[in-house]
Amino acid sequence: MARLSDEQRRARRARAKRARRRRRHLAGGALLGVVALIAGLALFASGSDPTGDAVAEAEATVARDAPAADGGRAAGRARERAVPKVAIDAIPPLRAGTAEVVQRGPAAGRKVALTFDDGFCADCVTTLIRQLERTGAHATLFPNGTYGSSWAPHARAIRRLVAAGQVIVGSHTFSHVDSPAVGAAAFGADLDRNERWIQQTFGLTGRPYLRPPYGAYDAGTLAAAGERGYTKVVMWSGTVADSNLRSRAYILNAIEHWARPGAIILLHANYPPTAEALPEIVRILRRKRLRTATLQELIGGSPYRPAG
C-alpha cells in the first residue's frame, strides 16, 4: 500500500472529524424530534398548554433515556424538573406569627436558593422566566408591585411553575420602601398592598417570605411582618451584587465564590446579564454537586404543599 503524505493524513483526519460532528448533530436532531413527538402526543391527548406540564414531562422522559454521551446535561435537567405538583387552587388564610430572620439554610441536601428581587426591566423578567422554564432551575421570586407591568405578562407561566414546585413567590414590598425609614405603619401598609397585588396577579400569596428592600429591618418591621403572616424575613449569605449592572463574568465569579450547601444567593431581575447567565449558573452549581432549591425546599414554611 502506498504511504500517505502528511497532507493526505491531515485531510483524512479532517474528514473523520467532520463525519463525527455530523453524527453528533444528527443524534441531537433526532433527540429533539423525539421530544417534539412525545410532547405533541401528550398535548393532543390532554389539550393542555404547549409550554406546560406535557412538554416538561416529555423532555424529562427523553432526558432520562438519553445516552451518556450528552455529558449528563439532559439528565441534570430532568432531575431539576422531577418535582411534585403543588396544590395552589386556593389562597391559604393569613396566619400571624413571630417573624424570623433567615440568612442561610441547612447544608444537608446540598441545596442552594437562587432568589430574584425587583423586576424593573421587563425584558429581563421575560428572559428570566424563559430561562427558568428551559433549565428547570428552582428559584424564589421577590417582585415589587410597582413593577407590575414587567411581571403581569408572565403571571400564567409563574403560576404554572409554582404549581410544578419549581418556583415560590415572596414579597419585596410594593414600593421598594426602606422600612426603618418610613416606620412600621407605612411599611405594613405597603406590604399589604404588595400582598393584594400578588394575589390579584398570580392567584397566590407571597406569605410567609419577605425580602426587605436594602436588607433593612428593625423591631417594628419584624412585628408588622409577623402580624401579616410574613414570618420568614429572608436575607442572604451571598450576592452577585447586581443591583447595579454587572458583566456575566462578574456574576459567574460571584456564584463560584458564594455557592455552597445551604446558601441563599441574592440576584435581581433588573439587568440582562443576570437572567442570561442562568444556564451557566446552573452548570456551575451542578459541577459543585449542588442543586437549586426554592425557599420552601431549603428552609420550609410555604403554605403550599405537594398535591395528592
Rank of each mutant, 00 (worst) to 15 (best):
A75Q: 10
R104T: 06
G76F: 00
C121S: 13
E100I: 12
G238V: 05
G145W: 00
A152M: 09
F142M: 07
Y271R: 06
G165R: 07
D117N: 08
R3G: 12
V240M: 04
I281C: 00
D192Y: 00
V167N: 04
A63T: 05
M1P: 11
R73A: 13
R248P: 08
Y217M: 03
R3A: 15
A107C: 07
A223F: 05
R77M: 08
R289F: 04
L245V: 12
T146A: 14
R22S: 06
E227N: 11
E195Q: 13
Q166L: 11
P143K: 01
T61E: 13
R156Y: 09
E57V: 14
N253H: 13
H176N: 00
A155W: 05
A68Y: 07
A56R: 07
T201N: 03
L204N: 01
G47W: 09
D192Q: 08
I198F: 03
A56P: 04
T201M: 03
R21D: 12
R104K: 14
A54H: 02
A14C: 09
A241K: 09
V35F: 06
A249M: 03
I264H: 00
L266M: 11
V112L: 06
T135A: 01
A263S: 12
P93N: 11
T127P: 03
V234Q: 05
A19D: 12
R228N: 04
G40A: 13
I158V: 15
A185V: 14
G238A: 04
G148N: 04
L222H: 05
P92V: 11
I284Q: 07
I168F: 08
R64Q: 10
R156G: 09
R196P: 04
R130I: 05
P92T: 11
G308D: 12
G136A: 01
A16S: 11
A45D: 07
I168V: 15
Q296G: 10
I38M: 13
V86G: 08
T51N: 07
G165D: 08
R95I: 12
